[in-house]
Write a protein that binds this DNA or RNA. Structure first.
Lengths: 240, 240
DNA sequence: TAGGATACTGAACATGCGTTCACCCTCGCC
DNA sequence: GGCGAGGGTGAACGCATGTTCAGTATCCTA
């Protein structure tokens, strides 16, 4: 599993080792000594190069942000979160360390992760705006929220990498699975899931002020979409 | 921030403290002493009740699974991941600990998290099947994958709690934001995002064997959907 | 009322942690 | 030839960790 480690700077080798271990096991579950061992150096050298474990983490964050957002030399290229993610997912094995680390950045709520997410949302919003203006996408009742949702949906393969693979009978997220996701996703984004506008209409009506009209088409079976239901469910207290 | 801790069993109080700290800071960043302090007991008592930190984690996992999947007494109720999540999200402040812990379970790839996710996928698949049979939902070219995607999309508010809140100008995920997500999500699931079937058609054609036909409607602007693009992007090697 | 189980504690244990320090090598430069 | 700067190391430091242990209080039961 250890990478053969090409002839990089020792500093870069340490950074890559940290990235892999932080990504695989998390920050606090990773010791400086483990990083040093993986990089083939002593723990003292890690401190010599980075000063502290926290500074090493910051350098990893910055490195990933550079990889994703694009570094200075190649400002022109349209490299952002979604395109980088797509590129990395195309070769999951090669980029597993970066993918794992990136997923942790986004879920851990660090500043760097927030920057990446905000950038993704902004780009998604601009893209949708342009497509709507060109008549290729529908406009939404809440464009900002729609951009956030679409952006967040796009992160799903990153965040649920292991779950997606296992739930579909393969170990981890294979390139075949990534390819297999394309068509259903586009079907969803082209036709939606519902045949009729009943659920949407009921929700619109409910949110417009009338909390209850016919109660027929909405609460039929835990709501059509499994995670959106306009009626407030009763809260339940904790247990013993 | 500390909860006033109602009159629970000491054992339950310790478990709740562990749940909150594990959820907020992660397993290895949480010390047994911190858990003990939060529960108002000594560290030794934590060991007395649970044997080890790892066993305490297992008990937390089991407790959340019980909360989500439903415990023995109430087998009949249709309590699953999505409905429990919805219920918890309706009172984010009250259930923050459970929500954070649950999010970690699902992303950390533990067995318990996998069980929850698989259960969610199965229920989503059944729901879609039933709705399709009733003529209320469209059938997909890949029903299993569609179920996985819809299930995963539903987990987004859980996994990206902090990001969603911040990206929309509020601190964390407020009930108002949860409500505000309803309509755009239903719009997406009712009408889709694309006005035409161009992108879907192009992808279908590309995946059917012809890798390139007109190249016009697909690669216009980084692809309509920001995260699905059938053409394989060129891989790039690592850096210095 | 004795006694054994149970709840609970403070102090200690061994270990691993992040970090520091003194020291060695090996260059490039004057 | 000398020499300073930087890459690199092993050993150690102080500390926090998970866990253990002897001991105390409290309760239930016989």
């Amino acid at each position: 599993m250890r990478s053969p480690s090409p002839d990089l700077t020792t500093r870069a080798r340490i950074r890559d080792a940290a990235l892999a271990l932080f990504g695989a096991n998390g920050y606090s579950a990773t010791s400086v000594r483990a990083i040093a061992e993986r990089a083939g150096v002593s723990a003292a050298l890690v401190m010599h190069h980075f000063g502290s474990k926290e500074a090493l983490r910051a350098e990893c964050d910055a490195h990933i942000v550079d990889e994703v957002i694009g570094r200075k030399e190649q400002l022109a290229t349209d490299s952002d979160l979604s395109s980088t993610m797509r590129r990395w997912l195309a070769d999951v094995d090669l980029y597993r360390a970066s993918l794992d680390y990136l997923a942790r950045m986004i879920t851990d709520g660090t500043d760097a992760g927030a920057r990446l997410f905000d950038d993704l949302v902004d780009r998604t919003a601009s893209m949708i705006d342009a497509e709507v203006a060109a008549g290729r996408m529908r406009s939404s009742s809440d464009p900002r929220m729609t951009a956030v949702i679409v952006a967040a949906h796009g992160l799903v393969p990153l965040l649920l990498e292991s779950q997606l693979g296992r739930a579909l009978g393969e170990p981890g997220l294979t390139p075949a699975l990534v390819a297999r996701m394309t068509l259903p996703t586009l079907e969803l984004y082209t036709h939606g899931l519902y045949q009729t506008t009943d659920v949407l209409d009921a929700a619109t009506a409910a949110l417009a002020g009338r909390p209850d009209t016919t109660r027929g088409p909405r609460s039929d079976k835990g709501a059509g979409d499994p995670n959106q239901d306009p009626d407030p469910p009763p809260a339940r207290a904790s247990d013993n």
